[in-house]
């Protein structure tokens, strides 16, 4: 469904992506892992067109996304940003219902609010946060509001940038289950970035590891433990010694 072919992106001298090839099938859950600063967030932004790649092609359903109709393209996506990126001028429920309140098929205010509150429940937030402003919430709560916003319009393809960082273990479990449910029950395609190996095992159908601007390893989650790839093995066991240099 999503196909990346030689995607490259540099910021000045900093060559972040150096030719990423990756395929994500419809209705599957792909998890991207990799060291901090390897360009995982940049990769998601390239697919969404928020960052323009220097080279390479990104295909969605066999069509080059740079030539697609932007509105129709974006209408299929939901995105949770790493920093939540909530609109701080709007109360929580209007953040969650933002897309439902725009466009031709917009819902009435009260319907949109009901939908927002239902989505907030799914991420473990009570209705009383609906009328608060994002600045009044804790980091983990903001993250979950961002998650509710990403799934509010029930998009086909959802990107989650570190959905469980900043959450307690129980809440992280709830969110992992939610992402899994969205893929299996709603048939959505998910691409998740995470550093949490238990999340990887809970969410992923397939895993891809980004290292040095390229996909170092990709395969089904079950094959991760005996991949024989020294980089992946070091990463999943969190060892300081191995081919990936840990600067001290």
């Amino acid at each position: 469904m999503i196909g990346l072919d030689g995607v490259a992106k540099a910021f000045g001298p900093n060559r972040v992506l150096q030719g990423v090839d990756l395929d994500i099938d419809s209705g599957t859950s792909m998890v991207i892992i990799g060291g901090s600063g390897t360009g995982k967030s940049v990769l998601l932004k390239c697919i969404l067109g928020l960052v323009t790649p220097d080279a390479g092609r990104i295909m969605l359903d066999g069509q080059d996304v740079s030539r697609a109709d932007r509105d129709a393209f974006l209408a299929r996506f939901g995105m949770l940003f790493q920093g939540a990126a909530l609109f701080d001028s709007l109360p929580v429920w209007q953040n969650v219902a933002f897309r439902l309140l725009q466009g031709r098929n917009r819902l009435s205010k009260s319907d949109a609010r009901d939908r927002a509150i239902a989505k907030l429940r799914r991420v473990g937030l009570t209705p009383d946060v609906a009328d608060r402003f994002p600045a009044e919430l804790s980091g983990g709560m903001q993250k979950r509001v961002g998650l509710a916003r990403a799934i509010a319009a029930e998009p086909e393809i959802i990107f989650f940038d570190e959905p469980t960082t900043g959450l307690d273990p129980i809440m992280a479990g709830v969110i992992n289950d939610l992402i899994r449910e969205i893929v299996t029950e709603m048939g959505a395609t998910a691409m998740t970035i995470t550093h949490d190996m238990s999340s990887v095992r809970a969410i992923a159908d397939r895993v891809a590891m980004l290292h040095n601007g390229r996909i170092q390893w990709t395969g089904p989650v079950g094959a991760m433990d005996d991949s024989g790839d020294p980089y992946l093995t070091q990463f999943i066991h969190g060892r300081a010694d191995g081919p990936i240099e840990a600067v001290r």
Binding site: D71, A75, M79, F81, A85, L86, R99
Partner: peptide, 16 residues
Amino acid sequence: TMKVTEQIDALVTLST
């Protein structure tokens, strides 16, 4: 501030 905190990117992904 909206730009720096990715709120502008978020607007775009919400088709706005």
